[in-house]
Computed example of a mutant assay.
Amino acid sequence: MVEIRYFAAIADAVGKDKETLDFPADATIADLRTALAESYGPNLDKMLAVCAYLIGDELTRDPSTPLTPRVDVLPPFAGG
């Protein structure tokens, strides 16, 4: 089980702040993106492609990064 937490525009797109999904032990960010696109539509995958993913204490965009029990999905933030 992986707890997925969504922030900002991604939370708006999926209509929730978090959910828990089942993935095999060797699942990666690419697997997460595929599952979310299948659930929420291909337009979400375009958004996910520009997101960063907080895996443990590391922020990454590498689709081959293995999932951990909690993953934060962070869209690009504007600011200054």
Rank of each mutant, 00 (worst) to 15 (best):
A11C: 04
G15K: 00
Y53P: 06
E19V: 00
A78Y: 10
K16S: 00
V14C: 01
F23A: 09
G56N: 08
A11M: 01
E3Y: 01
T20G: 03
L44T: 01
Y40C: 03
R33Q: 14
F77Y: 15
L36F: 15
M1P: 12
M1T: 15
V50T: 10
G41K: 04
M1S: 15
D72T: 10
P63T: 09
T28S: 15
E3H: 06
T60L: 06
A37W: 02
G79I: 08
T68V: 15
T28A: 03
P75V: 08
K18N: 09
G56E: 11
A37Y: 03
F77L: 10
V50P: 03
E19K: 01
K46M: 13
D45I: 05
V73M: 04
A52G: 07
I55E: 06
L59M: 14
I55F: 14
L44A: 05
T34L: 14
Y40S: 04
M47R: 13
D62W: 06
P75C: 11
L21H: 04
A11V: 01
L74Q: 09
V50E: 13
C51L: 03
A37T: 08
F77K: 07
Y40N: 05
Y6P: 00
D45R: 06
P24V: 07
A30W: 04
F23T: 08
L48I: 06
V50L: 12
V2K: 02
Y53K: 02
D62L: 08
A49C: 01
L67Q: 02
K16F: 00
A78Q: 10
A27V: 12
K18C: 10
M1V: 08
P75W: 13
P75G: 12
Y40M: 02
Y40K: 03
A9S: 09
Y53W: 08
M47N: 04
D22I: 08
P69D: 12
P24M: 07
V2Y: 01
V73H: 02
E3V: 14
I29W: 04
D72P: 09
A49G: 12
P63L: 10
I55D: 09
D45K: 09
P63V: 08
G79L: 05
N43K: 08
E38R: 05
V71S: 07
F23Q: 06
F23W: 10
L44K: 03
A27G: 11
T68P: 03
L32V: 09
M1A: 13
V2N: 03
L48W: 05
A35N: 06
G15L: 00
T65Y: 15
M47Q: 14
A52E: 12
D62G: 05
K46A: 12
A30H: 04
V2Q: 01
A35Q: 14
S39L: 07
L59V: 14
